[in-house]
């Protein structure tokens, strides 16, 4: 591999590394229980929890490593983990 001067890398390029493959459990959400405290967004190490007005909280399974912090910190107990089969 050719090194650039100063070994400079372009910003945000680790996005090509899809860490979702690390996962053994995946988070799901019961939207009726979500109180929109956004703890899941705040504490996700991989910025894999997203929110939109229309869809509410949703997960980016390309990057979610399945750590389960979102489920553990969920104020409304809306998020839960299920074993994932691939």
């Amino acid at each position: 591999m050719k090194l650039r001067i100063g070994a400079i890398a372009d910003p945000g390029t680790s996005i090509v590394n899809r860490t979702g493959g690390w996962r053994s459990e995946k988070p799901l959400i019961d939207h009726s229980l979500c109180i929109r405290c956004f703890n899941c967004i705040l504490y996700c190490p991989d910025s894999a929890v997203k929110y939109s007005e229309k869809e509410g909280i949703y997960f980016d399974y390309d990057f979610c490593k399945g750590c389960g912090i979102c489920a553990n910190e969920c104020s409304g107990r809306a998020i839960y983990m299920v074993m994932e089969e691939k």
Binding site: T19, C44, D46, S47, K65, I69
Partner: peptide, 14 residues
């Protein structure tokens, strides 16, 4: 951004 190699549940990444 996502795609970093920190362990699942890494406190430092948060």
């Amino acid at each position: 951004v996502s795609g970093h190699r920190a362990c699942a549940g890494c406190g430092m990444a948060i």
